[in-house]
Amino acid sequence: MVGNASRAAIVRNRRITGLSADVIAELVAELGPLWHERHQAKVASRPRKRAVGAGAKHRLVFVDRLLATLVHLRHGATHDVLACWFDVDRSTITRAIGEVRPLLAERGCTVSPGVRLRTLTEVVDHLGASGKTGIIDGTEIRVRRPAAGRQDRDKFISGKSKQNAVKTMVLTDADGRMLFCSPARPGSCADITHARQLGLASLLANGPAMEILADAGYQGLGAQTGGRVVTPPHRKSNKNAPDWYEEVHERQRKAHSSRRIRVEHGIAHLKNWRALARHLGRREHMSDIVQAVAGLLSLQQTADLTSARQM
């Protein structure tokens, strides 16, 4: 395991984990007891031939497990590299990341100190109560191609990028702050289909009045949600359109694009975490990875905003 000096250097340097020291301390205080409780429950639930507490002890304490997971998510470092860095076996790192990553994914997105959004229903209620504008967009993450002969092998091929990918729906506010990231779906799933499967149309149709900005991939949701989803304007004339119509249409399209550009910025911040740039591991872990990174990003955004207000 790493020494105290190395551990302090990892915590102190924000470039290594993408998080400030205060945020890491908050994660340790919150997740440490939860991890210990789940570990003890797992140990007590299986048949035993010796007393609880007997046998080999952990060489990797929880703080190091959390730091290894953060470095893996931030820089895409392989388990072999992390095992050498923390001076443990590769299987120890794999097990540690597999235990910590779901805890991070379950935290949800932090919108203010003590307030988190874990489900799409909570996000819709938050936007309705605050009167803020939301912005949605889909983003793709490249993954390995399924093995030959596997059922539904082609469903991961994206119709947009023509590559094997998974897709997630990102929802931010008008300032680009992360509010929600959906579980991952195969890349062949259309943006509007994904939104409907998540129940967004029914939540907005039966929910409070609000405005959700979206791109052309979501055209059709506006009619289903009573105009709550706003998409780029349709072309009313496709043949022999006068010059003034082309100018008006282009101006309206650019105005809409300018309003929803913040969600692109939010997605760019997500992709700064190398685990989401291209994933070479198991596709089954992508939902936890996406939601874990979104939760960490929103927590740091909230901490930075709170610190700026106090200055």
Rank of each mutant, 00 (worst) to 15 (best):
T69F: 11
L70D: 09
L70T: 03
L70C: 10
L70I: 08
V71A: 04
V71E: 01
H72R: 12
H72L: 14
L73P: 01
H75C: 09
A77T: 14
T78E: 14
T78R: 09
T78C: 13
V81C: 06
V81K: 03
V81H: 06
L82S: 01
L82T: 00
L82V: 02
C84R: 12
W85S: 04
F86P: 06
F86C: 01
F86T: 03
D87V: 07
D87G: 04
V88P: 01
D89L: 07
D89P: 02
R90M: 12
R90E: 15
T92M: 07
T92R: 04
I93M: 05
T94G: 14
I97S: 06
G98D: 13
G98Q: 12
G98W: 07
V100Y: 00
R101E: 15
R101L: 15
P102K: 04
P102F: 03
P102S: 05
L103N: 10
L103W: 08
L104K: 12
L104R: 08
L104W: 09
A105N: 13
E106L: 12
G108L: 04
G108R: 02
G108H: 02
C109D: 10
C109Q: 01
V111R: 01
S112D: 15
S112A: 14
P113F: 08
P113I: 04
V115E: 14
V115I: 14
L117F: 05
L117E: 03
L117M: 11
L120A: 05
T121A: 13
V123L: 10
V123G: 05
V123C: 12
V124N: 07
L127R: 00
L127D: 00
G128K: 00
G128F: 01
A129W: 04
S130N: 07
G131A: 06
G131S: 06
G134D: 05
I135F: 01
I136W: 01
